[in-house]
Simulated scan of single mutants.
Amino acid sequence: MQILSHAIGERFSIGEDITLFIISVSGNNVRLGIEAPRHISVHRSEIYARIKNQLAGHLTIGPLSKR
């Protein structure tokens, strides 16, 4: 794991195609902006886990399971 310190407005890159930037910091909350190509999905970890469970055929409760 790499730990970085950045100020609001600063950016950092992941590879050639992904850029993260600090939008705001309020107490323990940090708002990030993420620029990535459309073919790369960007999700919070709990949402990504629900998507993986749905794709694997597991029962998921919540809005993602309604189609």
Rank of each mutant, 00 (worst) to 15 (best):
L20P: 00
K66D: 14
G15C: 00
R31W: 14
I47H: 13
N53W: 09
L55N: 10
V25I: 09
S24C: 03
K52S: 11
I61A: 04
N28R: 10
T19V: 13
I14M: 07
I18G: 04
N53P: 03
S24I: 01
T19L: 02
S5K: 13
E35S: 08
G15F: 03
T60P: 00
E10P: 00
R38Q: 15
R31P: 02
F21S: 09
I8F: 05
I51P: 05
A7E: 11
S65F: 02
K52M: 11
E35N: 06
K66E: 15
A36Q: 01
T60L: 01
I3S: 08
K52W: 05
G62P: 02
I3F: 14
I22G: 04
G62D: 02
D17N: 08
T19F: 07
V42D: 03
Q54F: 07
R38C: 12
V30L: 09
E35R: 07
V25L: 06
S65R: 06
E16Q: 07
G33S: 01
A56I: 09
R11H: 10
M1S: 08
G62E: 08
H58W: 09
S41A: 10
S65C: 04
K66F: 15
G15Y: 00
S45G: 02
N29C: 08
I47Y: 13
G27F: 00
I47A: 11
L64F: 05
R38T: 13
E46F: 11
K52A: 13
S24Q: 03
L32V: 03
Q54P: 00
G15A: 01
R50A: 09
E16R: 06
I40A: 05
L55T: 08
L59R: 13
I22N: 00
T19R: 07
F21D: 08
I34G: 01
V25M: 05
S5D: 10
E10H: 06
T60E: 15
V42F: 10
I8W: 07
I23Q: 12
I18N: 01
